[in-house]
């Protein structure tokens, strides 16, 4: 990414799936665009990207995401087996002086090529996904799509993030969970908005996500979707941990139905636009120290 001076990156993430990450990131992006801000939305849920369903961007470019894997230069190879000893992933083995490469197992660390004493390996590329760019209602939309049966989500996410960098504000829609693809999505963000719902599952997964962002040392706050559907345990947890709740969306069947049809909340249910505007105001008013850490009192 090329550095713009005042660029702010907000990642929208959650431990649990289906809590409303996509709803919140698309509506926040649209509010910003309607306010005349220059905004990019990165769909980093490359396994199941859904932002396009709501924003229906006109895609104007598409490029492959490639990863490297080793290829044997036969007339230089002596079958010495160093490459197989170096590989921690069983992606390259030597049997009867023949080198076999399993590209799907390769993590592109480059070790085998670096340490081959005969310089008999070279790195070549293979595609694991694509990155598409488009625009919708003034939002620059970038989405990644992992090829089916591929595993390297993080490589595609990295490709999406590299394509960004033109706007003042970047909103990242992360995949669910707390492991590698999520970390790859949020690690360079200035701020993480953790979305949850007020249920035992929502609370359990929120705690995991809070652990993750604290380990990464990124400021964060919480958004509660369907905030009146379950019990009060999520609110209590956030109080105890001094975590700010900066967005609460009620459990409204009309929101669920609009979602099912791929409609934007702020376009069809105008009364909710204020919630998103307020959330952004809280965010940009960063003088408020409580917003920054979720760690004071520890």
């Amino acid at each position: 990414m090329t550095a713009a001076n005042n660029r702010r990156t907000i990642a929208v993430a959650s431990g649990k799936g289906g809590t409303g990450k996509t709803t919140i990131s698309t509506n926040l992006a649209l509010v910003l665009a309607q306010q005349g801000k220059s905004v990019e939305l990165l769909d980093c849920d490359v396994e199941e990207p859904n932002c396009h369903i709501f924003l229906k961007p006109q895609i104007h470019s598409s490029k492959p995401v490639n990863v490297l894997y080793p290829s044997v230069i036969q007339d230089k190879c002596t079958g010495c087996g160093v490459c197989a000893q170096v590989c921690e992933y069983s992606a390259i083995v030597v049997v009867k002086n023949k080198v076999l490469v399993f590209p799907g197992l390769c993590h592109s660390c480059g070790g085998c090529t670096l340490f081959c004493p005969e310089e008999a390996l070279e790195e070549v590329e293979r595609q694991v996904g694509i990155v598409e760019e488009g625009s919708s209602s003034g939002i620059h939309v970038i989405q990644g799509l992992l090829d089916i049966t591929e595993l390297m989500s993080a490589a595609v996410i990295n490709g999406v993030k590299k394509s960004a960098g033109l706007s003042d504000i970047v909103i990242i829609d992360s995949p669910p969970g707390t492991s590698c693809p999520v970390i790859e999505s949020v690690k360079d963000a200035d701020f993480v908005l953790l979305v949850t719902e007020p249920t035992p599952f929502g609370l359990n997964d929120l705690k995991l996500a809070v652990g993750m962002v604290r380990q990464l040392g990124i400021p964060f706050a919480v958004a509660i979707n369907r905030c009146d559907m379950g019990d009060g345990e999520v609110q209590r947890y956030c109080d105890d941990e001094h975590i700010r709740i900066i967005l609460e969306i009620p459990d409204d069947i009309r929101i669920a139905q609009a979602y099912s049809r791929g409609e934007m909340i702020i376009n069809v249910l105008h009364e909710y636009k204020g919630l998103f505007v307020q959330c952004l105001e809280t965010f940009f008013n960063q003088k408020d120290p409580g917003l920054n850490t979720g760690q004071d009192g520890q």
Binding site: G18, T22, E47, N50, L151, S153, P176, Y259, S260, G262
Partner: peptide
């Protein structure tokens, strides 16, 4: 797990049956 990536592939290979739970939304 959700998604189509690494943990999902590890969950399903060699299984006798996969049940996909979906919901009536475009997503």
């Amino acid at each position: 797990s959700p998604g189509i990536g690494c943990p999902v592939i590890s969950s399903i290979t060699g299984a006798d049956m996969v049940v996909v739970v979906t919901e009536p939304t475009l997503s």
